[in-house]
Design a protein around this nucleic acid. Structure first.
Lengths: 342, 342
DNA sequence: GCCAAAATTGTAAGCGCTTACACTCTTCTT
DNA sequence: AAGAAGAGTGTAAGCGCTTACAATTTTGGC
């Protein structure tokens, strides 16, 4: 293994005939650098293939050139899509992406917030995907000096991109109601200490509002906690089938849970829409195949959009405009797991 | 925003009454530190909540505390699982995970290898997931000074974990043949400049060998290139249905492609196993639901195993044993999309 | 044309850590 | 019991960059 020679800022300085300091400023597009110098530096840097050492830059107080993505999990369809979309944006902007998956463990989250200072040493910004944060955690992050943006979070003091979860759930539920169903159950993302899904409560609200619009009330027995996974949906539906009276329609607050519900039904000789109408949210690629009615949301778009917002903040740290909140559209897609209730 | 005070090695040195140098050595478990000193340092560090600055460590020639995962994509089921499993191992060992998704673009790969020196400044090691590397890229990486490990790669000069792809494909194909099928097509991971799946060629070999074992030959018309995605499988199967004579059985070299094939069949009023028997490889969580026969492989295990190997190398850089190659078991799971051919 | 103000460039002091090397104690030898 | 060898510890010189601040050049007003 040959000891690789590293091109340093010193080399660029010598070649361009300027001082290290001027080179440093030129490279970072700081003011007070003449065009001539700028050009000379750019030229020399290109010629030498110079790349700043992020470690040295960081140590000296500059930026790290990396951004952390924090997500509840990296395996669920939604997060895998969003992560990859964001990673692309970051990569194209010259940032490394540090992936931190909470894996449903609050211990991981605790560790991160316990060492926020450490994190802020290693990354310039954080992209949060649907992370359920306490008020104090929000405050900590906002005060950390890190640039922050998020997907699917509400009332946070930084840029956010998401869908209107309440509306999406309302759309799904209203579809069911419009079809004449009035005996509905909901598979709702579980909210526990260990594993909470941030969007779940809004989606539950949308469900409730739709019922209210039809002068129906939410029966607590028909709100089933469910992990936002295939297996979670399956367990929840099994529970519903085993222990409660079967409703005529079920709203699962994500497609993967709906898949699980469909599985559970089949295990009991039931099918949709024959015995129960089923609808989800997401428009997962398998949904089309399974004929699952759902409310589609743009997933990669959300990740990319939020990532761009974050990169903008980082690159224009001088323009401190207000945090913005963007809602992307959702759309009901009627397929074959929902039908009119006679 | 309050300027956060950083606990430095200096603070630990003062509190423990030792020199910075001794503290540094103690913290990294280097030899020539008395037990007494070791204890004092550990104590002081814990009391202060000291964490070394990775930037400073890196700059001074130490390690960065991060590891890159390079994968063809982060969204496919296999990779999302493996990435998360590896990320967990890295996180538990105190490493940050830098995610680099090639997104099927050779340009990204080129960029990485064009700046391998840059990468090696930012991470201590690299975990490659099924990345198709040229010989020169392998050599470059091996000479980079980075610790390397991989999943699903063969004949590489570093630790590797995988399944026996040829065997898995042989198992799947033999199942079909054992059922009396002799007119088989294969949906094989596409090998193009832009987007190649490393395991595909081995799986194709296994397919061929199984045929050969039954004194059958591979008809080129029945080897269909297919992206390893749902959509890829769907397109490939559509092609097969539209332009060639329908075989009695199809082997898709991953479950997602098999899902796509099943979709395409349904679009044409066909179903498995009635018209065509279908088998995949993976045992994706949806496979059970769809009744897809498949050859199961442990996915998270592969990611975690390789990650552990890499971490071991990094932590015991002094014990340079030979690169190892580990094969994990695969297992045929017979479900409902395959049946005896009359 | 002259001088102050503004624009540009350079000097030098770190950032927090690792490491070569020098130094001080302990242990064994003989 | 003296000297060599070795264990433990400290000193100081960077790693490559950013950034106050000082030095220099340019600009512009009169």
């Amino acid at each position: 293994m040959v000891k690789a020679y590293r091109v340093t800022i010193q080399d660029v300085a010598v070649l361009s005939g300027l001082s290290i300091c001027t080179v440093s400023r030129a490279l970072r597009n700081l003011p007070n650098v003449s065009e001539k110098a700028q050009a000379k530096v750019a030229d020399a840097a290109a010629k030498l293939g110079y790349k700043a050492s992020s470690a040295a830059a960081r140590l000296a107080g500059g930026s790290t050139g990396s951004i952390a993505i924090i997500a509840p999990t990296a395996t669920a369809w939604f997060f895998a899509q969003a992560v990859e979309a964001a990673e692309e944006v970051f990569g194209d902007s010259g940032f490394d992406t540090v992936l931190i998956s909470l894996r449903g463990k609050s211990s991981v989250k605790r560790k991160i917030f316990g060492d926020l200072l450490g994190l802020s040493q290693r990354v310039d910004g954080v992209l949060l995907l649907n992370v359920d944060l306490s008020e104090s955690e929000v405050a900590l992050l906002a005060a950390s000096g890190l640039a922050v943006a998020s997907v699917g979070m509400t009332s946070v003091p930084w840029d956010n991109v998401g869908i209107d979860d309440e509306l999406a759930a309302w759309q799904a539920t209203s579809h069911l109601l419009g079809l004449g169903h009035w005996d509905l159950a909901v598979l709702s993302g579980r909210e526990t200490q260990e594993n909470s899904v941030l969007t779940a409560s809004d989606r539950l609200k949308g469900f409730s509002r739709a019922l209210k619009d039809h002068h129906l009330t939410v029966h607590p027995d028909l709100v089933i906690n469910s992990d936002s996974t295939i297996d979670g949906g399956r367990k929840a539906m099994n529970e519903l089938i085993a222990h409660r009276s079967l409703p005529t329609a079920v709203f699962a607050d994500c497609d993967e849970a709906a898949f699980g519900a469909l599985m559970a039904m089949r295990e009991h000789g039931l099918s949709a829409p024959k015995n129960v109408s089923v609808i989800g949210i997401d428009d997962h690629p398998m949904s089309w195949f399974l004929g699952l009615s759902t409310v589609a949301q743009p997933v990669a778009d959300q990740g990319a959009f939020a990532a761009n917002l974050l990169v903008d903040r980082l690159q224009n740290a001088d323009a401190p405009n207000e945090p913005s909140n963007h809602f992307l559209d959702t759309k009901l897609i009627e397929r074959k797991t929902t039908r009119r209730q006679r």
